[in-house]
Design a protein around this nucleic acid. Structure first.
Lengths: 221, 221
DNA sequence: TTAAATGAAATAGTAATACTATCATTTAAA
DNA sequence: TTTAAATGATAGTATTACTATTTCATTTAA
């Protein structure tokens, strides 16, 4: 993890890990807006000042969580795509990993990946939708997100090297995999999955969108 | 405009119009996070309490601005699509209206539509990415957004009545038209338009995405 | 083995934010 | 002209976001 993501590395101390663990829980429960360092400190039996030793402010903590999530997801994707050569299968697996519900893998005890996934869906874009995106980007805070995007763009190019918008399609896949799930649960009339609330339908929609789009370019019409 | 969008209708008084005018200016300049009613009050020579007579809080003001924007956009779309029967042309016009830079039309003196468009790109999704979306949705605060989405879904069905995901594609068009522009300017490596910074390329990308997607279903493969 | 350096955590603040309440004054509609 | 609505001025509270200082424990180095 990039040094600029934190003041002190939370992975290296007990308090640090507690901060991660309980911030995920609190943000998921009450939303990022109502989340404060004071509430977090009370929850873990520490003090506000204690949290500030690890993170400059709560927005930085959100960026840390998103960076963690995208790094973890890229690892997962790389793992699941290992030994697969067919780019069609790769893309399908990938869309599945993005849109489907996450089951908490117990690899990192203090991170509940399932809750974190829900946070990214509802709060993830707030990490970059700020007036200081560009500076944050210069500090490479969004590198994990961009790396995943590049990985996806690469697979798209494997499928069809003539496709003209691999990066934009990659970021569209990532964002829509999350946003359509959010809409399905909260503003269902913006989707076609309102009654079912089934993530698998989002997967099918995105597969359809992606493959019709990149297949189209194989022809010369 | 829905009565629940405000405490007192800002369109009906001088102070109300000033609130709209200068909140657009301040949010665009410094971002929604750093925007406060105190700063706004100072800017327009009124008091915090004065603003609270019109809007419950700054988040409600953001919802109002987004609702205003989507209503205005739907009107614009309807106007520009009037007399056009070809759904292909309709969809192209529509994508153009969504992604292209807005030129301030002087129809509403106190609303700078161009600035408002920029606000929607950078802050729009914060209107619904909250823990209280569902209640806000019950109060019909997102109706203008949903109406525009329905309108677009309708045109998609005109083009191809067999297409299976008209609503999801409609919300995808709306969101991506904005997000790809945001990425192009702020996180360019997430797009394929990095160097050019030209909105027209976003339009082309989305056209390609949409038409390959809905055309695909015309075939039976 | 004892002093110096380091680091984690508690305490106690401050400034700003997000509101609410009250009352006087201006403006506009009946 | 009277009455009500709208605005302005003032004051106040609780919470939030953040900082400075001090305490306490541990490591390291003389």
């Amino acid at each position: 993890m990039n040094e600029k993501l934190f003041v002190r590395n939370p992975e290296q101390t007990e308090l640090g890990k507690k901060i991660i663990q309980f911030s995920i829980q609190l943000i998921q429960e009450n939303g990022f807006e109502s989340f404060t360092f004071k509430k977090l400190a009370e929850e873990i039996g520490s003090t506000e000042a204690g949290i500030y030793r690890y993170f400059e402010n709560k927005h930085r903590l959100l960026i840390y969580l998103t960076a963690w999530y995208w790094s973890w997801l890229e690892f997962r994707v790389t793992f699941h795509l290992n030994n697969i050569s067919d780019p069609t299968i790769k893309l399908k697996k990938l869309i599945q990993l993005l849109a489907a519900n996450v089951v908490d893998d117990d690899s990192t005890m203090y991170v509940n990946e399932s809750l974190l996934h829900q946070i990214i869906i509802a709060e993830g874009s707030k990490a970059y939708l700020t007036k200081h995106v560009s500076e944050d980007n210069k500090d490479r805070l969004f590198k994990p997100y961009k790396d995943l995007c590049s990985l996806i763009a690469g697979i798209i190019m494997e499928y069809n090297s003539d496709y003209t918008h691999p990066r934009s399609l990659a970021s569209t896949i990532i964002e829509m995999a999350h946003l359509q799930v959010f809409f399905m649960h909260n503003l269902p009339s913006l989707t076609d999955f309102g009654e079912s609330k089934n993530e698998q339908l989002v997967v099918e929609y995105i597969e359809d969108l992606v493959f019709s789009s990149i297949r189209h370019h194989l022809r010369t019409d």
